[in-house]
């Protein structure tokens, strides 16, 4: 509690205000992906069978692995904030590093997944893809755009967390002033949140 009153006294240090701003930003992220979910639902309702067939090409194992990786990274993120709030810098730094590494693991996994598809000639506008039924073309279009946009958010999240890691180690972010880390964490959790929907909608509709 004392921590919070101190923060409030600082100039431009409205703790709740900063969170309100961040949540409003998350709203825009939800609606950005929302446009894609809209397209997904329209195309899926139009070509349910094609989607069903196309999804068989995706590896459930890889998708599940990435789900576990992101869920775990959310845990480490939450733990790092929790530790920092109770003034324990070391474990916080450790868990922040773990979060970034897990994000990296996710991307490596994704790289191999995309790489394999592209090797099979399955990428937007490829002759192999255009030979498939229309619904499958759209399925792969959605797959690349949605997971690509999500991957981009993972990269942005990793950059934000790296900056925060520097801030934490330099005590700019600390047990009394942790709103930046909390907001960075909110962003990271939102990226996880979107994956929670992407996973079943692409990998589990066989």
């Amino acid at each position: 509690m004392s921590a919070e009153t101190e923060i409030k006294a600082a100039p431009h240090g409205d703790y709740v205000g900063a969170k309100v701003g961040m949540w409003l930003f998350l709203v825009t992220e939800v609606l950005l992906f929302g446009g894609m979910f809209l397209l997904y639902s329209v195309f899926r309702s139009k070509y349910p069978q094609d989607f069903h067939e196309a999804a068989k090409e995706l590896s459930v194992a890889l998708g599940a692995a990435n789900t576990v990786i992101l869920l775990t990274s959310s845990l480490t993120m939450a733990l790092s904030i929790g530790y920092l709030r109770s003034g324990k810098k070391k474990p916080s730094v450790l868990f922040q590093t773990a979060t970034i590494l897990l994000g990296f693991a996710f991307l490596v996994n994704k790289y191999f997944e995309w790489g394999a598809k592209i090797q099979h000639g399955l990428y937007p506008d490829s002759p192999e893809l255009l030979a498939l039924p229309k619904g499958e073309i759209l399925f792969y279009g959605l797959y690349y755009v949605m997971t690509g946009l999500h991957g981009l958010h993972v990269i942005v999240g990793m950059i934000i967390l790296s900056v925060l890691l520097v801030f934490t180690s330099k005590d700019i972010v600390n047990g009394h002033s942790f709103i930046k880390l909390e907001n960075g964490g909110l962003y990271w959790h939102l990226v996880d949140l979107i994956w929670i929907y992407l996973f079943p909608l692409f990998y589990l509709i066989t």
Binding site: W23, V30, F37
Partner: peptide, 13 residues
């Protein structure tokens, strides 16, 4: 605030 995003998305869909 968060509910507003979900509500809006539902409505447009």
């Amino acid at each position: 605030i968060f509910a507003a995003s979900v509500l809006t998305l539902t409505v447009i869909i």
